[in-house]
């Protein structure tokens, strides 16, 4: 082995991550090469410095939230949890149903679940808090490069609570928040040009129920701990929209949901 090759392996040699044969070759070379030996010493010094560099301990606030090592997370008492009334249920659902048999959620599905859980747990459910679509819709103006449809669904048993800006797949999206009984429903909407419309598809991800569809170039994802039957009745789904697109109208007779 020459100096050039040794230089390439020296870092892994220092870490004792090389196989025996290569280790011996390098040791042989080091025994007679002052240059490479000096390089190794320098690397070891750097490592020692790094090992003694500052380790940032978790700040007291975070520690208080999660408890001391070995302590119990005060799930029920932490103030950041108190905001979410459906929290206990959500967590139980996650724990209980996160099922090994289910297909592994793809990245987007995971992000959607995560943002949903986070909105419930991390006290960041709403940026704009209003049951009035005339307040919620304009709030997004200037914050997004599109205007999400915000529908009043109160007559169908889904109360608009507000909205917030969220991030999915690396882009800012609108999250509309509805509520049915005590169940929070996050509805994510963002444009996806050039994709065909798609009928609502039910999903069960990490114990949550979700439904997604595509309509008029917009991607919709609704997620909740609400049961799947009621969630799929969310009257935003395009098949529930009568031709006039008046969201208050009932489902027109003869129009059934596409199960695919």
């Amino acid at each position: 082995m020459n100096c050039h090759e040794v230089e390439k392996w020296l870092s892994a040699y220092e870490d004792r991550e090389l196989d025996l044969a290569r280790t011996l070759e390098i040791e042989e070379h080091l025994a007679e090469c002052a240059g490479c030996s000096a390089a190794l010493r320098k690397m070891e010094e750097t490592s020692a410095l790094l090992a003694s560099a500052v380790r940032f301990p978790a700040p007291p606030e975070l520690r208080r939230r999660f408890g001391a090592p070995g302590a119990r997370i005060p799930w029920h008492t932490a103030p950041w949890l108190a905001a979410a009334a459906s929290l206990a249920l959500a967590v139980v659902v996650v724990w209980r149903y996160a099922p090994p048999a289910q297909h592994a959620p793809d990245l987007l599905e995971r992000d959607i679940v995560q943002e949903h859980v986070r909105s419930l747990l991390a006290d960041h459910l709403l940026d704009v808090n209003s049951p009035d679509r005339q307040t919620v819709k304009p709030w997004f103006r200037g914050k997004l490069d599109y205007a999400p449809e915000v529908a009043d669904l109160s007559s169908q048993g889904f109360e608009l609570v507000g909205g917030r800006l969220d991030y999915l797949g690396g882009r800012a999206v609108s999250a509309l928040v509805y509520q049915r009984a005590q169940h929070v429903i996050n509805v994510f909407v963002w444009p996806e040009a050039g994709q065909p419309d798609q009928a609502p598809q039910p999903h069960s991800i990490a114990g949550f129920n979700a439904v997604n569809w595509r309509s008029k170039g917009m991607n919709w994802w609704a997620i909740s701990d609400l049961n799947s039957v009621e969630l799929e009745e969310l009257p935003l789904c395009p098949c529930f929209m009568p031709p006039s697109r008046t969201l208050h109208a009932a489902t027109p007779p003869g129009m059934t949901r596409n199960p695919s």
């Binding site: 940032f56 978790a58 975070l62 520690r63 001391a68 090592p69 302590a71 997370i73 724990w95 209980r96």
Partner: peptide
């Protein structure tokens, strides 16, 4: 009980790494 057990498992497995995670 299962809930409690699972939570305890989570805490036992993950909380000791809080400092390292933060670092």
């Amino acid at each position: 009980l299962t809930e409690k057990e699972r939570r305890a498992r989570f805490e036992a497995a993950m909380l000791p790494h809080l400092d390292a995670a933060y670092n």
